[in-house]
């Protein structure tokens, strides 16, 4: 048992019971957010660094040519990976991505894919033979909670500023031919349930204390992705309340994206 963590758990839980949070925010407040794009300026076609309070993540986009999937011969390809690199937390270990990293990447991927944020049908070089492949890679630099929303913001900000290379004489030429075709901006909102309280954008101390977690990916009017995590449970009404809050908050967060 980790004594420090147990004590924090009780402390955070008691605060929530009294309607307060450890960093003084309201239950539905998101931490101060900064987004910086084009930070990997010579090698990545798109990139963004997002700070959500002390949580710090970097997303890089690579656009390469490849063969399409057999079941989608006339569509480009997108894929998402996440690495919880050991510099970000004493709890992250070296080695292959574990289940937390896999879940993180898949939930970020889900909002982007299901909202059809990237217009994959426009990423065909030669039908059935050659298409553009967009790789979204997330690097967590400092983990202070809510990696899901930080990574989502980093990914969509990076994609939103991604440029397309040229394809000439069977080769990719790294010169700008245009922008990555973008339809929508799907934003995710993650809530933590601590005792009977539900808070938006949990910091790490709150994540240690939480019973369950719920993420909603929305583009304002439509819902594209959801994921419940943690070993606790939600009442059906609590789920509806979080979905409403996420849809209501969408506009505020969208303003931050350049």
């Amino acid at each position: 048992m980790n004594i420090d963590r147990e004590l924090k758990r009780h402390f955070v839980g008691r605060l929530i019971e009294n309607g307060r949070r450890i960093d003084g925010r309201g239950f539905d407040d998101i931490r101060e957010t900064s987004i910086e794009t084009n930070v990997i300026d010579t090698k990545a076609e798109g990139s963004a660094r997002v700070k959500l309070g002390n949580t710090d993540v970097l997303c890089g986009i690579k656009v390469l040519a490849g063969t399409p999937y057999p079941d989608r011969p006339e569509s480009g390809v997108m894929m998402t990976g996440a690495e919880l690199v050991p510099i970000a937390s004493p709890n992250f270990e070296m080695g292959r991505p574990g289940e937390d990293a896999i879940e993180l990447a898949r939930v970020v991927d889900r909002s982007i894919r299901e909202s059809q944020m990237i217009d994959l049908d426009k990423l065909v070089i030669e039908p059935k033979e050659k298409v553009w492949m967009v790789s979204i890679d997330l690097h967590v630099l400092n983990h202070d909670g809510n990696l899901l929303d930080a990574c989502n913001l980093a990914a969509i900000s990076a994609l939103n500023t991604t440029w397309m290379p040229k394809f000439e004489e069977e080769q990719v030429v790294r010169e700008k031919s245009g922008d990555l075709p973008i339809n929508k901006l799907p934003i995710s909102f993650t809530f933590a349930k601590i005792g009977s309280g539900i808070v938006l954008d949990p910091i790490l101390d709150e994540e240690f204390a939480m019973d369950a977690r719920f993420t909603v990916g929305t583009s304002g009017k439509e819902l594209h992705a959801m994921q419940k995590g943690g070993s606790g449970a939600f009442k059906p009404d609590e789920i509806s309340g979080m979905v409403d809050k996420a849809m209501a908050k969408y506009k505020d967060v969208k303003k931050l994206i350049k």
Binding site: E114, L223, A225, M226, Q227, K228, P236, V243, D244
Partner: peptide
């Protein structure tokens, strides 16, 4: 779902739902 407790313990979603469609699906 745990019926006697009215508790949701697993929930995932992908696709394109409006709020009304989501409520109906739930």
């Amino acid at each position: 779902y745990i019926p006697p407790k009215d508790e949701i313990v697993l929930l995932q979603m992908d696709g394109d739902f409006t709020k009304e469609e989501f409520e109906k699906a739930k």
